[in-house]
């Protein structure tokens, strides 16, 4: 090696001979299979939960309540439409994550990672807030028709039970966005450091 001093090379080689294999190949294989299965299960699980929630919402909003007013029908369409839109975005994002960029040259890997994280940030911030906003608007559109059938107390209980979890959900989303923004910044800095 001509690039670095021979002393460093000798130290490195000594180190290499003193290292015992950190883990057995069998353990790695088992772990790899387990992680792979867990990851697929998690991603599929997420989509299944979202899909089932959508079906339950469809049942209640379309068949069970069977709204009559035009305003309520617009509300239902907004709620279901944007919920479906969010599910499609999540599925698209999972599809993007599957690409095998880990085997590509680091500059490509970081480039794709940057694009992917930008997409995640966009999904988790702009689109999720948009979905929440439109969903809430849809919910508000339902209230006049609900008010015909429910007492003030139950109306108030319904509104509170919508907005309290909504606020908690917004805080969780905000935390996730910050985490992904931090990851994005790290990737951008790494890319800059690599290409510099």
């Amino acid at each position: 090696m001509t690039e670095l001093n021979k002393n460093l090379k000798a130290i490195w080689q000594d180190l290499g001979t003193s290292i015992a294999p950190p883990t057995s190949a069998q353990n790695v294989l088992l772990e790899a299979k387990k992680l792979n299965q867990n990851s697929i299960k998690f991603q599929r699980g997420n989509l299944i939960v979202l899909g089932l929630s959508f079906l339950v919402m469809c049942y209640f909003l379309i068949f069970f309540f069977s709204f009559q007013d035009l305003l309520s029908k617009i509300g239902v369409a907004l709620m279901l439409g944007f919920f479906l839109f969010r599910i499609v975005l999540e599925a698209y994002s999972i599809g993007q994550a599957k690409s095998d960029r880990i085997t590509e040259p680091s500059s490509n890997n970081l480039e794709k990672e940057e694009k992917y994280l930008s997409l995640r940030v966009k999904i988790h911030s702009t689109y999720t807030y948009l979905t929440l906003g439109v969903y809430t608007l849809g919910f508000i559109f339902l209230l006049p028709e609900f008010a015909i059938h429910l007492s003030s107390f139950w109306m108030a209980a319904m509104v509170v039970s919508y907005f309290v979890p909504g606020i908690i959900l917004t805080l969780i989303i905000r935390k996730n966005v910050q985490k992904e923004l931090h990851e994005l910044r790290t990737v951008v800095e790494l890319k800059k450091s690599l290409m510099d």
């Binding site: 960029r101 880990i102 040259p105 680091s106 985490k179 910044r185 790290t186 800095e189």
Partner: peptide, 23 residues
């Protein structure tokens, strides 16, 4: 090696508590 280098770089991203340290 390519996978090793990329895994090392990805490792940085996962280090949640080291944000300031990393930058």
């Amino acid at each position: 090696y390519r996978i090793s280098v990329n895994t090392c770089l990805n490792h940085l991203k996962k280090e949640k508590l080291k944000s300031e340290k990393i930058s």
